[in-house]
Amino acid sequence: MTATTVIAAEPEPRSARVRSVNRRILAAAWGMSSFKIGFFVFIALLLASAIYPEVSSVSATKMVVKDKFLAPVYLGDKWTWDHLLGTDQLGRDMLMRSLIGLRYSLLVGIVTVLLIFIIGCGLGLFAGFKGKWWDTIIMRITDAQLSIPMIILAITILGVSRPTVPTIIIVLALSGWPLYARVARSAAVAERGKEYVRGLRVLGAGDWRILLLFAAPNILPPIAFVAVLDVARMMIFEAILGFLGLGIQPPTPSFGSIIADSRKYLLNAWWIGTIPGIFLAVALTSINLMGSALEKARNRIYGGL
């Protein structure tokens, strides 16, 4: 009887040690309360922006002039239960406009970061592993691209052409990839010098085999963890573009354009600018909390801090 309990007890500590680095990072991040708060707030916002506009009969773009400048409930002289967060200068529902704005903001942020990650890491890994001329050419282009601030590039392209959601995503992705290329390249160069790569070479494995099957799964996850932070950055850029009038075009609401329009009414109808600002800030904070927690966890696991 004792023998079986010993055997049953044995695998426990072993499997704990077997957990891979990435799992440990995730677990360490999950252990921080900041990550959990960020995660739940983010999920709540994500669900709200995905579901509420679909099930509600309120429109984000319908103007009802008699309902204009309604304050959020209990927060002004004039308010109704129909518009929980009030209405804007044209009588449009603020809650709905903010949620639609959030929806586009998240869409642009997440898709852009995915694209950046794919383009940047792809080129970076290729340059780092291939070396020689490929490396030089790709890295010089990266440097050039890095030397033009992304916002200048973005507003140049969007200002001159007509902004739509796909163009905004493409433009932000085009201007954001170089940093990822740099990081992935230096990781690939470091990986190439590692002992296990030599070990595989001795067995006869070629460059591509080593890169795709063994090196990339090591290099990419740590970069992906930090990419979470960039979702927030891209959402800010999307809002800035909207603010400059170069984002998603009206009548579709976006955070940037709502805030830009609200400037005129700030003193008498503060909520028009403040409510989308709060939505944006909460969404960004939730993402940043997750991202920084992941980054911290990564540094702790890798650096022993």
Binding site: S20, V21, K194, E195, Y196, R198, G199, L200, V202, L203, G204, A205, G206, R209, F214, P217, N218
Partner: peptide
């Protein structure tokens, strides 16, 4: 064949023992 000095770094990370040995043949 060469056996490398440091058995901790000479093996690819996050690969099962069987997969590592198979690799020689799969190549």
């Amino acid at each position: 064949q060469l056996l490398l000095q440091d058995p901790y770094n000479a093996l690819p990370p996050r690969t099962t023992v069987g997969r590592m040995i198979e690799e020689s043949l799969l190549i």
